[in-house]
Amino acid sequence: MHDDRLVIAGREFRSRLWVGTGKYKDFAQTQHAIEASGADVVTVAVRRVNITDRSKENLLDYIDPKKYTILPNTAGCYTAEDAVRYARLARAAGVSDLVKLEVIGDEKTLFPDTAGLLEAAKVLVKDGFIVLPYTNDDPIVAKRLVDIGCPAVMPLAAPIGSGLGIRNPYNLKIIMETVKVPIIVDAGVGTASDAALAMEYGADAVLMNTAIAGAQDPIAMAEAMKYAVHAGRLAYKAGRIPRKLYATASSPIEGML
């Protein structure tokens, strides 16, 4: 598996598990979970600095940007305009042109507003960003995003934080056939088998946050996810047997008494 690297826009990634950094108890737990997951890409949000409590620690004190690829998101943005503003602020605060583009359509489901997403993606690609869009499991939107110039697409498995697992494996399969860029299944994974399944279907990577951070033991779950993504990838590359209705004997009949 050493040569099985994920390449997006000329950048190589060692890990096919990407993780978010939200919802942890504290920065130390965040750091331990990320280490246990083996992820080399971590997503972060961009927010106002707390200027009244200057003693507050910085996330980047715990997650070394030299060791990890920091992938800023535009979480919490409900319009294309806001998402573009946050993407530009993220670029100004960081060191790269990478952005995980989110334009949220609805507070209850956190489903993407795909019209706003396409609009924001167009602006940001033109502006030189490497846009990784969080999108619905809609093959047509995925194709449009690639046409605009997104070097990967990130369709959801289920609503963010829901833990429902892959709701529409058939759509994911169609997306994988439709677009020729890496597919990163993002959001909705609940447990290790969901992540393994995503990889077995042929996803190039899986991104998750809540499934790890919200587990009773986040560090153990992070490790479970590492193995699940690895196992799913291996199984995908190995090529599974076809499903059959009836049995096929594994032991030969020949030589029986």
Partner: peptide
């Protein structure tokens, strides 16, 4: 003046999730 930096984030919490609604 707005001063921003990176914080921990995947996505904002789903409202249902925070209210403890589970499925």
């Amino acid at each position: 003046v707005e001063i921003l930096s990176f914080i921990g984030g995947g996505a904002p919490r789903c409202r249902n999730h925070e209210e403890g609604g589970s499925y």
